[in-house]
Design a binder for these strands. Structure first.
Lengths: 235, 235
DNA sequence: CTGGATCCGGGAAGATACTG
DNA sequence: CAGTATCTTCCCGGATCCAG
């Protein structure tokens, strides 16, 4: 992208990550961690192959991404965020918060990947049974999804891992998934709304952020960092 | 911009504000409040006239900007952020924090407007004499700058206003201004660093965030929301 | 004077095919 | 698997012109 040539922190930031697709690449690396080229392609439907290669090169040059060679298979490469790249988390988090209301509109032709829910889910999920032991709930599949681990009050959201055996798996329609985790769709109504809950439904209930949706405010707007938020909400 | 066609809050957010110049227009409206077309042109050096008009139309269509007719002069228009547009403050704030380290590199040919400092300054300034009465320090000029008001512990940063008579005015080299307010340039050294302080230097000292710069962390990285400042946002 | 519209050249993005 | 090559399309940038 052409630089704005403005001595301004916002403009200089946009000089680096304002290009089309760049922030979505950051989303993938922030969610999935270390990625192969083909992982990124799968997580970024619609991107042209040459563009992905070009962006990765630019991001490497500007110190946001690190490229490492994998031992096997041959010609395998891994892409990771540098500390500087990972520092974009705050930007992405605010963007997700701001964009949350846009998820209400259901453009049917939009593609969906279950692992895109990871970033919002990190702010949405709670352990409603802080005195119970470890359970894992999977959203999506092994190939595309995430494992939500609740353990004595803490919650962790990680990419689906084959070695993990979840006690419950939630799959189904994208809009219904969002509605479920934002509390707009009660768990009981899930089966009639394009959602399939396989396994221990109680485990699913345990991790769903239970707060009732205030009018005009999506739960996605809560701080994704947890803790005693003094946040005054969006201004 | 072409939509990403992804059912993801980040992607949908970028569909609306990911276009070139859009977030910089938000910066102007967030800093300055109500703006005329020509105000925006002055604050966005480098933008083509047609592009500014097109962006404003798009932002109006997507509910980020409101256009109102001014009584005089004839055919004068005012552009303002809607609540939804102003809600981008969090995104912009995080972007400014992330971009702060990029201000160290001094690309001499980058243009500079003093009012671009307003957003960072809202997080940077403190009232170091909470028991003193109201003083106003101007950074920049009446035409392009901001008035920093300290009053019994609170700080407000507003666009320069002709009716205001500051007790001190700080002007000078852009990099030196940044260094001064990030605490990297002591006030005493200012005169030899391309900075001109006109008036009551003690008032300037009063509002400068005094913390010594920790290694690897710019003071710009402090939360811009911090403290009990019931900041009502722009305007 | 303010707030645009119009035209055009260059370059970035998009689509697809191909390769070490 | 991880890209490159090539072609097309369309957005951006710069200049100029125009209506109220």
């Amino acid at each position: 992208m052409k630089t704005y040539r403005q001595y301004c922190a916002l403009a200089r930031g946009l000089d680096l990550v304002g290009d089309r697709w760049t922030l979505l690449i950051v989303r993938e690396l922030l969610s999935l961690g270390e990625c192969r080229y083909s992982d990124l392609q799968r997580g970024l439907p619609g991107i042209a192959s040459n563009l992905l290669a070009q962006r990765l090169r630019e991001m490497e040059d500007s110190g946001l991404v690190r490229r490492t060679a994998l031992p096997r298979p041959a010609h395998a490469t891994a892409f990771t965020l540098t500390a500087r790249g990972a520092a974009l988390q705050g930007v992405v988090r605010e963007f997700v918060k701001w964009g949350a209301p846009l998820m209400a509109a259901d453009e049917a032709q939009d593609t969906f990947r279950a692992h895109w829910l990871m970033l919002p889910l990190r702010g949405l999920c709670r352990d409603n049974e802080p005195h119970s032991g470890r359970v894992v709930v999977r959203v999506g599949t092994v190939d595309d999804g995430c494992d939500i681990t609740a353990d004595s009050g803490t919650v962790h959201v990680a990419p689906s891992h084959p070695a993990v055996d979840p006690v419950a798996t939630v799959t189904g329609d994208s809009a219904a998934l969002v509605a479920l985790f934002t509390g707009q769709l009660p768990l009981e109504a899930s089966s009639s709304s394009g959602l399939l809950i396989d396994g221990d439904a109680a485990a699913v209930r345990r991790i769903i952020g239970g707060m009732p949706t205030a009018p005009n405010e999506s739960p996605l707007n809560r701080s994704a960092q947890g803790g005693p938020t003094k946040d005054g909400g969006p201004r």
